Computed example of a mutant assay.
Amino acid sequence: MTIDLFPDLRAPLARMTNDAVDALVTQYGALFETISTAILSVLLVVEHGLRAVPPVVLIAAVGAIAFYASRKPFFSVAAALGMWLIGALGMWDQAMQTLAIILVAVAISVVIGMPLGIAAASSAAVRRILMPLLDLMQTIPSFVYLIPAAMLFGLGKVPAILATVVYAAPPLIRLTDLGIREVDYAVVEASRAFGATRWQILSGVQIPLSLPAIMQGINQTTMLALSMVVIASMIGARGVGETVLLGLQRNDSGMGLVGGLTIVVLAVVIDRITQAYGQRLQRHRKAGA
């Protein structure tokens, strides 16, 4: 006699999931279409803007931003050379597509993540609810995020951006929460004693003093967004990730290396600029303490 140790949960779970997705698409299809159109419109503006700028101008702009963030001439030149190397590899256009996706995804993450981080820092109840959700978002493999995004929004850049936001936003939420909670309580109380409102304390004291932590969160979010580039290309996000994916599919090591090197250069340039600016803010904060 054979004992059936495992009940059949696969079929009911799959059926429930499909029914739920069908119901969402049927009832809220217009809403999803509106969201998709809005995100795609912003993305196209950013992407066309980046691709329209002459490479020499953008390379100079990256060097200027690097100098503003670090105040180090050598770092400024190195960042500009990194962008020049992307063009020399023949990946400039693809890099601009990828950069547009990252900028839009990070912007959405900031718009969503900072208020949630502030809410978590202000309310213990909100924090108790958010933390397990963030743990879940950071534990689930990144590829899994593409499935519901593709189901609800189809294939293309919009579901790739939304999946990237879900994957990349948790560090920003956590570090915003941490930064605000670490603001000196005496400073907050002094502001309250001078008659500052709750909004004035938040905008004039807590957020400015927690900017180094918030910048670190933005840095981590940007790096996670960049790590989704290749995975997002599987649902039509294009850009540098598509080059890497094609290299893998065609067993073309050279193409894969060029795409991978482009991603590495982008990651290093963005990471060093955001980290340098965060460290600069940290030094200013310590100097003013």
Rank of each mutant, 00 (worst) to 15 (best):
V158G: 02
F153K: 00
A168W: 03
A150G: 02
A169L: 15
T197M: 09
L172C: 00
A196R: 14
Y167I: 09
I173N: 02
D135Y: 06
E189K: 08
E189F: 07
G195V: 11
G154T: 00
G195D: 12
V188R: 14
P171V: 04
L134S: 03
T164P: 03
T139K: 09
F143S: 12
S142F: 06
L162R: 07
V205G: 07
Y145S: 02
A163F: 03
L136H: 08
L172N: 04
R198I: 06
V183N: 08
A169R: 04
F194Y: 15
A196H: 11
L146E: 08
F143P: 07
I180A: 03
V187M: 11
P148Q: 04
Y145M: 07
R174Y: 08
L136R: 10
S203K: 14
R181N: 09
S142N: 13
V158I: 06
K157C: 03
F143L: 15
G195Y: 00
V165D: 00
T164Y: 05
F153T: 02
Y145I: 00
P159H: 07
R174S: 13
L162F: 06
Q138F: 12
L202E: 08
A190G: 09
P159E: 04
G179R: 01
P170M: 07
W199M: 14
R181V: 09
G179I: 05
I147N: 08
L152P: 00
V188E: 15
I201T: 15
M137R: 03
L172V: 09
I201W: 01
T164G: 11
V158F: 06
L202K: 05
R198Y: 11
R181S: 13
Y185G: 12
R198D: 15
F153S: 00
V166Y: 03
Q200V: 09
V188D: 13
T176N: 01
G154Y: 05
L178C: 00
T139L: 02
E189T: 08
S191K: 04
A149E: 01
T164F: 01
R174L: 15
V165P: 03
Y185M: 13
D184Q: 10
A186F: 11
K157L: 13
A193I: 06
V158C: 04
A150M: 11
G204A: 08
T139R: 05
S191D: 10
L175Q: 09
M137D: 10
I180F: 02
V144N: 04
I147F: 13
W199Q: 12
I161D: 03
G156Q: 05
L152H: 00
F143M: 13
V144M: 12
A160F: 06
P171D: 12
L172E: 03
T139F: 07
W199H: 10
Y185N: 12
A193Y: 01
V165E: 01
Q138Y: 10
L152N: 00
V205S: 06
L175S: 00
L162I: 14
E182A: 13
A190M: 12
Y185F: 13
V166N: 04
V158N: 04
W199T: 13
P171K: 02
I147S: 07
A150Q: 11
A163N: 03
P159K: 06
D184M: 05
I180Q: 01
A150E: 03
A149L: 10
T176Q: 01
M151D: 11
